[in-house]
Design a protein around this nucleic acid. Structure first.
Lengths: 150, 150
DNA sequence: TTTCTAAATAGTAATTTTTCTTATCTAAGA
DNA sequence: TCTTAGATAAGAAAAATTACTATTTAGAAA
């Protein structure tokens, strides 16, 4: 758990990504990290609203987009129609539960390399690969419990 | 190219998927197949509108959703915020051009098996995998030309 | 520290996308 | 042919997103 996200770390992270560190941005970025299960814009807005009633929804939308541009966070397009955001920018992939619409991180360096190597060897003309994203679709068996992989 | 999509084939395909073969559904399904580059709902609506002015947008939305449920087509959530649809239900993956927002099919049986085998070997508890989808992000170098891979 | 300015924000309006509602209609099985 | 469950049109409504503009502010420069 990231309980150690303090004001200065957040601020520096923003500055490092060439983003003016406004109060609103710090709060929004913190919310993305706290809600570490791929929140929607509304979920982020709902989290920050009680303590920051003057932050407008438009600001949340605009800044999430800015953060993605600056590669501070990632966008995750979801089949349920909602755009979601991911504060974890390490290489990783996702499970998607078609029952609960949860997106669950799947950190598996071996698999990531396997795919990366395949693409490197493959001759692909007229396309410069930046990254890739694997989404594994299925259903959680016990919705209450977590997915365990080893 | 699928120039051989005729009325009866479309109708039978719908019936095969337990969908009542209405005139509207035949027209909508045909549009998805014709617009074989992952059209949005609006693009589908725009294509059929001239010849079928009485088909309503709501019908297009509802039926695309129905088709996905019936596994007649696939949904492709796109980072540009638009939901797109794919009439090709064969196992395949996608390139996504962050410049043009195009989604381009990447049919590569070897890669698909590589990933499938990895996941089969991996012990994953509390999740029943149905399928997976690899999206390769990057930029087309010459926007006019196609991506070539071999 | 104070001043300056480009950039960011709040609040609201407008637009876009999607879903819902209801009266009417139709495909396909009996 | 008749019947009816399911589908449709049309428009209203809701939800999601973007745009606009006066005001404010972070951070650079003096």
């Amino acid at each position: 758990m990231q309980s150690n996200i303090n004001y200065n770390d957040l601020k520096n992270k923003l500055l490092l990504h060439a983003l003016k560190a406004t109060q609103q941005r710090i709060v929004i970025y913190e919310a993305v990290l706290r809600l570490n299960n791929h929140p929607t814009t509304e979920e982020i807005y709902a989290l920050i609203r009680p303590d920051n009633p003057s932050v407008s929804l438009g600001t949340v939308y605009k800044n999430l987009e800015k953060f993605v541009e600056a590669k501070l966070i990632r966008k995750v397009a979801c089949e349920d129609g909602m755009m979601r955001f991911d504060g974890n920018i390490d290489k990783h992939n996702h499970f998607y539960c078609t029952n609960t619409h949860e997106i669950i991180d799947f950190q598996e360096e071996d698999l990531h390399q396997l795919i990366g190597n395949f693409l490197k060897k493959k001759k692909i003309d007229n396309f410069e690969i930046e990254d890739f994203h694997l989404q594994i679709n299925g259903k959680k068996i016990d919705i209450q419990k977590e997915i365990v992989f080893s």
